[in-house]
Design a protein around this nucleic acid. Structure first.
Length: 228
DNA sequence: GACCAGGCACATC
DNA sequence: GATGTGCATGGT
């Protein structure tokens, strides 16, 4: 059973927060197994998915992605040339279709003008520079930028989402006013940078949140983390 | 019919 | 700088 060791946030010889972070990973990993997250044929498809999945269930995103593929638009230059109303019609199932079309176009402008439409040239950039670039693009916030960096570009950057904070809060591992950066640092200062592990940890937390840590249910006794 | 989902930008105070 | 609101579809 997972027993939370509550302590103030600290790093050092007795970093109990680190023990908890490792315990949570081990426990969830054992419970769910390898989740093989973010199925996609290309890094570009991951990026498109990262934008389309904003505040949206993945099943809806899958339909939209498939529509883009069938239409032959799952490539930077083809998608950039397509007119907005056509893209809107294809991604309607993923919701916010007007906003997301603008977001896709904003990213494509960056990709084509700064990287000749080639995602691979982004990989060569230092992570912090790349992240700032992505954050400067309209429609790309911290979670989307980090998802692109971790899943599409395979660089070790921990992705935080609403579930992550909710789970940490319920285990008294962060304060209510902790922001995205606080939580990201909390993990990254205590884990070895490892792309596959960061991907799996993020997926595990999202799965746990979805199944056991819903907003409307204040606690869950069948959660693998033994929420009280 | 209400609530939620693998957020973000913008307005307002 | 914190908080509220619009964006929109599909599943539960």
């Amino acid at each position: 059973m997972f027993a939370l060791k509550a302590t103030k946030l600290q790093i050092g010889t007795s970093d109990i927060l680190r023990e908890n972070i490792l315990s949570i990973y081990a426990l969830l990993n054992k419970h769910f197994g390898n989740l093989h997250w973010w199925p996609a044929e290309t890094p570009f498809e991951v990026i498109v998915g990262a934008i389309l999945t904003q505040n949206t269930a993945w099943t809806n995103v899958e339909t939209a992605i498939n529509n883009l593929k069938v239409a032959g638009l799952m490539s930077p230059h083809q998608l950039r040339q397509a007119n907005d109303s056509f893209i809107e019609s294809l991604i309607t199932p993923s919701g916010y279709y007007r906003q997301k079309t603008k977001k896709l176009k904003a990213f494509l402008k960056y990709l084509c003008e700064q990287h000749q439409g080639n995602v691979d040239t982004m990989i060569a950039m230092p992570t912090n520079v790349l992240r700032n670039d992505l954050l400067s693009i309209w429609g790309i916030g911290q979670e989307t930028a980090d998802s692109i960096i971790l899943y599409a570009l395979q660089k070790p950057l921990f992705v935080v989402d609403a579930y992550t904070k909710r789970i940490l809060l319920r285990h008294q591992m962060c304060s209510d006013n902790a922001d995205y950066g606080d939580i990201q640092r909390m993990f990254m200062l205590r884990l070895q940078p490892n792309v596959k592990m960061f991907q799996q940890y993020h997926a595990l937390l999202v799965n746990t949140g979805k199944l056991f840590c819903k907003k409307t249910i204040p606690s869950c006794t069948i959660c693998p983390l033994q929420c009280l």
